[in-house]
Write a protein that binds this DNA or RNA. Structure first.
Length: 731
DNA sequence: TTGCCAGTAAACTAT
DNA sequence: TTACTGGCAA
């Protein structure tokens, strides 16, 4: 294919991004500007026109789904002109997420760091139980120290590439010192379990490359052209990794949109994209500002919102698409009315013909909001699918079974052992487990060897002895077959051999039945995995399971309405989009409101949601809603005020009727003086406390004498206070 | 050791 | 509202 034909249907900016192959390149790609098209075309161009062997190209995406999509499209492009196979085999372009790429590297070269190739990946459930162990071991109660908070601090440290030792050195308040102690212990245990958490995958790979130049050189040599998608959502560790890999050749193309950065809370550093030009001399910047997705009014609406942010590069999207319909805002009575509005609108439009259910998506800020929507859709007999929420691989029964598999692969994995040992119940409780762990610790052996020794030397009580013997026999049996039998057979053997199926069948409840169904589904998943990846082996299956995201399980074209969080919606598009819960405290979320940077992130999230819509965009807010048990009255989201009024059509069927909140529990702080003080105590409000000083309200619950608020104080941290006793005053 | 109950805490996004 | 812990009895 000649270079003028490969870019013939691209606009000049897009073509430039495809053809500029050497050196650093930053593509600022606005929403709907044909980003994936550019990336795939660029890969095809490198292979086809520049004669770059496909294996010399690394493309990093944000999700496995995006990776799959990209591979498919590159294959299509290369397949179009039949020439000799082999060289243009797109299958050998490595397209993956940061995490899957790191797993691949570590499985191969981790030994240099003392990481066995059989290491397991711990997800956040595993992390949590490990952290709980650490807390207990240090004599701390979960009441005094939230293990999730500790883990999130550790995660932040790891994203900054701070080891436990380094973190300890720079800890300078009480909380950080405590975190440091726990980080040290947590990491020590992870190491001894031969387990890596998500952040370790990145951190260990960086360490590998920094300490073993020969390993780095091998990959620099392999990947001569590197592409990173969604660059605005990379964290420091990822930045460092990319930097190392491109160190010798500088052929780095990053694609991103600062306005779509929505993962700050996960360590993403917007500066990676904002400072890209500064960090890479001779860098070319290309802006893709023509939008091919949305109508003019939708684009104007979204642009109006995001224009209220300060920290941005500044882009103005334009489109040649039709003007389209105005954005519709529905002011609902409550969350049920809001859900009903969406259901009725979808029903009406779908009945008119022209559009199928596939064309509709409903986005919400938090998963908890999905329930009411589900009910409304179910009652309206509208088929739907929820993407996200409780994931398949996070269900209890699935995690239990995976624990068996993980123990088969990695005999040192005591977190998995503790999970499976009493699932189903075998009469082996905390006391016995403690005994076995002690045994392992004293003998400096794996938990597997400790169990074996306990059985051999008859160290357990008769009942436990018998149960343990059976368990070990099962694991050994399955372990001996791993190389020969299909994974699905191994899973089948574990489901029956462990007595798991029997216990569930015995229960005779609908829940138990659905759990059995899920386990069967796991067998199917293993079969599909084998078909896709050949004999990747058990470890590869477990990797893929650990790294799947919500979105990966989402497939288009099922004739159903899609429900998902705004975060999950990134990268997708729909003909018609509903965004619900546009209220202060919900979206923007109450926890984000006091911090200007977090507020800007919420605004970007709003922008991302709006720009998913091709032709129709419906927004909804409710005057009151029940949330977490109690009713709240929220003001319409500030983002609604930021949409240019001339592209917004407001529908408010309840306007004339008396639906104002009762005077005792009104909405957010309104700044007129006659208002009772308690009526100002809503998230975002600043108050003064006699002991703690000035703070910002994060949450409000209860009413009357029972009214409670959670306040974040500068010095004292977060406190939950009874308003009745706390002597709060206006700050 | 298990299973039940009651009380309570947390309730945002996720590779 | 839900999910989970911790205490307690069998």
């Amino acid at each position: 294919m000649r270079s003028d034909t490969i870019v013939a249907d691209l606009n000049p900016r897009q073509a430039e991004a495809v053809l500029h192959t050497e050196g650093p390149l930053l593509v600022l790609a606005g929403a709907g500007s044909g980003k994936t098209r550019v990336i795939t075309r660029r890969i095809a161009y490198l292979i086809d026109h520049c004669g770059v062997p496909p294996w010399n190209i690394l493309a990093v995406t944000f999700t496995n789904k995006a990776a799959g999509e990209m591979k498919r499209r590159v294959a299509d492009l290369l397949g179009q002109n039949g020439s000799e196979p082999g060289l243009r085999d797109s299958g050998s372009v490595w397209v993956g997420t940061f995490h899957s790429t790191c797993v691949r590297i570590l499985r191969k070269h981790g030994a240099a760091l003392g990481i066995k190739s059989s290491f397991v990946i711990y997800d956040d459930g595993d992390q949590l139980s490990l952290m709980r162990d650490c807390l207990r071991a240090q004599g701390l109660s979960e009441r005094s120290l939230n293990p999730r908070a500790i883990l999130s601090r550790i995660s932040r440290a790891k994203n900054e590439l701070l080891t436990a030792e380094e973190y300890t050195l720079q800890a300078n308040d009480r909380m950080e010192e405590r975190t440091a102690k726990l980080y040290l212990m947590y990491q020590e245990r992870l190491d001894s379990l031969q387990a890596l958490d998500f952040d370790d995958l990145l951190m260990a790979t960086v360490r590998l490359f920094e300490q073993h130049p020969e390993a780095l050189a091998a990959y620099q040599d392999l990947w001569r052209y590197i592409l990173v998608d969604e660059y605005q959502d990379t964290n420091h560790a990822q930045y460092r990794l990319v930097h190392l890999l491109t160190g010798n050749h500088g052929n780095l193309c990053v694609v991103g949109d600062d306005d779509q950065s929505i993962y700050r809370w996960r360590g993403a550093d917007l500066n990676n994209i904002l400072d890209f030009e500064r960090d890479h001399s001779g860098c070319i910047v290309i802006r893709l500002e023509q939008n091919y997705r949305s109508t003019q009014q939708i684009l104007q609406g979204a642009g109006g919102v995001v224009a209220h942010n300060y920290g941005r590069k500044g882009k103005t999207l334009w489109t040649e698409n039709e003007v389209g319909d105005p954005i519709v805002l529905y002011r609902a009575l409550d969350e049920n009315d809001e859900a009903l509005f969406a259901a009725r609108t979808i029903q009406g439009r779908a009945a008119d013909g022209g559009t199928g259910y596939d064309d509709y998506a409903i986005f919400y800020r938090t998963n908890a909001q999905s329930r009411v929507l589900e009910e409304a859709l179910r009652q309206a007999l509208i088929p739907y699918v929820i993407v996200g929420g409780l994931r398949f691989y996070e269900r209890k029964e699935i995690k239990d079974l995976l624990a068996y598999l993980r123990w088969v692969v990695n005999p040192a994995d005591s977190v998995s052992f503790k999970r499976l040992v009493n699932a189903p119940t075998r009469g082996i409780g905390p006391a016995t487990i403690a005994k076995l762990e002690l045994l392992a610790m004293q003998g400096k052996t794996t938990i597997w060897e400790a169990c074996q020794r306990a059985v051999r030397e008859k160290l357990l009580n008769t009942k436990q002895q018998a149960a343990m013997e059976g368990l070990l026999r099962l694991i050994e049996e399955v372990r001996s077959k791993t190389a020969l039998s299909p994974i699905s057979d191994l899973i089948g053997e574990l489901i029956t051999g462990s007595g798991y199926a029997e216990e569930l069948e015995h229960e005779r409840t609908p829940e138990a039945e659905s759990r059995l169904e899920n386990l069967k589904e796991l067998v199917t998943a293993a079969q599909e995995f084998a078909e896709r990846n050949g004999d990747g082996g058990l470890a590869a299956f477990l990797d893929s399971v650990a790294l799947v995201s919500d979105l990966d399980e989402y497939a288009e074209g099922r004739g159903v309405v899609t429900l998902m969080t705004l975060h999950t919606a990134k990268g997708l598009e729909f003909d018609t989009v509903f965004m619900v819960g546009l209220e202060e405290g919900i979206f923007p979320h109450a926890l984000a409101m006091p911090d200007e940077r977090e507020l800007e992130e919420e605004r970007r999230l709003c922008y991302v949601g709006m720009t998913r819509a091709r032709r129709r965009l419906y927004l909804a807010s409710a005057r009151q809603r029940r949330l977490y048990g109690n009713r709240s009255f929220n003001l319409p989201s500030r983002f609604l005020d930021e949409i240019p009024p001339d592209v917004l059509q407001v529908r408010d069927p309840w306007e004339s009727r008396s639906v104002a909140p009762p005077p005792s529990t009104p909405s957010r702080p309104q700044h007129h003086d006659g208002e009772p003080f308690v009526d100002r105590l809503f998230p975002g409000a600043r108050i003064r406390h006699p002991d703690f000083g000035v703070g910002v309200i994060r949450e409000r619950s209860g009413s009357g004498d029972d009214l409670k608020v959670v306040v974040r104080f500068k010095a004292a941290g977060e406190k939950k206070l009874m308003v009745k006793y706390a002597q709060l005053e206006q700050a």
